[in-house]
C-alpha cells in the first residue's frame, strides 16, 4: 500500500542523519514475528527466573570472535558481572557464550559448553531460533532460581 508513496526522496539527509522510517530495516527481516516472540519470551523468562541478565546477539562478529563477544558482553548491561551474552554468528558458524564473574559462579563453563553443544546441533540443522531457545532453557535450568527471587 505504502509502496506507491515511496517516491524518490528529496530530503537533505547526510551521513549523520538518523534513518527515516522508510529506510529502517523491517522488524521481521531476520526472524518472523512468531520467532521473535519466542526469543523474547525465552530471554525474558530465563532472565527473570535466574536473576541473571541474558542477552542475545545475532550477527557478524569481528575476528577473533571471542574478543569481540567479550567486548559486547562488557557493554551488555549495568552489571556485566551478572550478564550472560549469547553471540550467534550464522555467517561464521560460531556461537560464543560469555558469562561475567558473578554469572560464572552459577553457570560453570562445562554447563555453558553443554548448552552450546545443543545449540550447535540445532544450528547445524538450520534451526536458529529453536537452538537459541533450547540453549537458553538449558542455561537457565543450570543457573537455577535463587532464594532471593522467590516471593
Amino acid at each position: 500500500m505504502t509502496r506507491a508513496l515511496d517516491v524518490e526522496s528529496h530530503d537533505t539527509a547526510s551521513e549523520g542523519t538518523a534513518p527515516s522510517r522508510t529506510e529502517e530495516p523491517r522488524l521481521d527481516e531476520v526472524f518472523s514475528f512468531k520467532e521473535l516472540a519466542r526469543l523474547d519470551e525465552a530471554l525474558t523468562m530465563s532472565s527473570r527466573e535466574t536473576g541473571l541478565r541474558f542477552t542475545l546477539y545475532v550477527g557478524e562478529l569481528g575476528t577473533p570472535t571471542r574478543r569481540h563477544a567479550e567486548e559486547l558482553h562488557a557493554r551488555s548491561g549495568a552489571t556485566p558481572s551478572d550478564a550472560v551474552l549469547i553471540a550467534v554468528s550464522p555467517g561464521q558458524r560460531v556461537v560464543e557464550v560469555v558469562t561475567g564473574a558473578g554469572a560464572a559462579r552459577r553457570l560453570p563453563d562445562r554447563a555453558c559448553a553443554l548448552a552450546v553443544l545443543s545449540m550447535t546441533s540445532s544450528f547445524g540443522a538450520g534451526d536458529l531460533v529453536g537452538g537459541i531457545v533450547n540453549g537458553l532453557r538449558q542455561l537457565s535450568d543450570q543457573a537455577g532460581h535463587p532464594a532471593g527471587l522467590r516471593p
Partner: peptide
C-alpha cells in the same frame, strides 16, 4: 538508576569471564 548501559556510561569490569564457544 539500574537500567541498560550506554556507550557513555562505562560499567564496572565483569571480572574473569567464563563461557564456551562452539562451531557448526
Amino acid at each position: 538508576p539500574v537500567g541498560g548501559a550506554t556507550a557513555a556510561s562505562v560499567p564496572p569490569p565483569a571480572g574473569p569471564l567464563g563461557g564456551a564457544r562452539g562451531t557448526w
